[in-house]
């Protein structure tokens, strides 16, 4: 399984010099499919690899640098749009890692800009962004109403000239999910970066990544999310402070599972529970052609991700509405 070869290489980059040329195609395809090629390129800096591989890795680094530059510019623009309100956005995920210079951001693809603002200022923030050139992506009234009532973010906005998306969050998990992280505490503990930008505290950064992966997603792109968590955990100085913070947000069990998966996938290996093993099988499902070789497990996790976010009756109503609109899990 190529995903296994990929994580082995991320864990232990010096293995690269011992790889046969024929092994690289599978690793590169799996890394692209998991959006980890830039990360791999950074990990393999200074390691001897065949010339065609180093050309591919150099391209990936170039892409990651561009992603970073654009993400920081988008953050700058969002900050400029919100500044007249006296509101400083808290950067989340990739843009936060890039802006704060964290190792999780090295080589990482970023994509949309995610920011967090206090819920009681959401309307003002939305109006200011609309005035600064962002527009609604999907005018579908069902989706719009759904987002506003149940999600942890506004429906996505896209900038009409720069063509980049922004997700404006007011907390880090949907309101329908069982854990209810303390959004006010996320905001009061946030850290000033300068330039009108903030990021979550060290502990909250880990817990946001954990909540996003363990309690919100269908684990697609999970290997990258788990890599983020690995890097963020490595930056933590006081483990007990992290534990206390997890308990405060109701994320103790999620953090424990994330630690086990990190240790198993990117660390020295660790005994896993039965359920953990299903997670690992899902995470490592890319084959040598970059295909998801365990589609059935993907579907199971898609349904699970909805169960995590919604009570059952609501889930049925939601899936039914989505189905009628022609949405199918990939």
């Amino acid at each position: 399984m190529s995903a296994r070869a990929l994580v082995a290489l991320l864990r232990d980059p010096v293995r690269a010099s011992a790889l046969a040329e024929s092994e690289w195609n599978g690793i590169i395809s799996a890394a692209r499919a998991e959006r980890l090629l830039g990360t791999l390129a950074v990990r393999l800096e200074g390691v001897d690899v065949p010339d065609p591989v180093s050309a591919i890795l150099a391209d990936a680094q170039l892409d990651a640098e561009r992603e970073k530059r654009i993400a920081l510019w988008e953050a700058n623009r969002a900050a400029a749009a919100l500044a007249p309100l006296g509101l400083e956005p808290i950067l989340l995920k990739g843009a936060a890692y890039a802006a704060a210079g964290l190792r999780a951001g090295k080589g990482r693809m970023i994509g949309d800009l995610d920011i967090l603002v206090p819920r009681d200022r959401l309307d003002e923030a939305e109006a200011a962004l609309l005035a600064a050139g962002w527009e609604w992506v999907k005018p579908d009234p069902y989706d719009d109403a759904y987002y506003r009532r149940w999600m942890h973010e506004l429906p996505p906005l896209i900038h009409r000239e720069r063509d980049r998306m922004i997700d404006v969050h007011h907390t880090i998990l949907p309101l329908t999910a069982r854990p209810r992280p303390d959004a006010a505490a996320l905001i009061t503990q946030s850290v000033e970066l300068g330039g009108g930008l903030l990021v979550l505290s060290q502990e909250d950064r880990v817990l946001h990544a954990v909540a996003h992966m363990m309690a919100d997603g269908d684990l697609s792109g999970g290997l990258r999310n788990l890599w983020d968590i690995r890097c963020l955990l490595a930056d933590i100085e006081d483990k007990s402070a992290l534990d206390r913070r997890a308990a405060h947000h109701g994320l103790t069990a999620h953090l424990a599972r994330a630690r086990r998966l990190v240790a198993h996938v990117y660390g020295d290996g660790l005994r896993l529970t039965f359920a953990d093993r299903l997670f690992v099988r899902r995470l490592l499902s890319r084959d040598a052609w970059g295909q998801d070789s365990r589609k059935w497990l993907g579907l199971a996790f898609y349904i699970r991700s909805h169960l995590l976010r919604m009570p059952p009756l609501m889930l049925m109503r939601h899936l039914w509405t989505k189905w009628r609109k022609g949405h199918r899990p990939a």
Partner: peptide
């Protein structure tokens, strides 16, 4: 067949 490819295309 053994060359490192820049890109993979799949016809599925």
């Amino acid at each position: 067949a053994a060359a490192v490819a820049d890109y993979t295309v799949r016809l599925e």
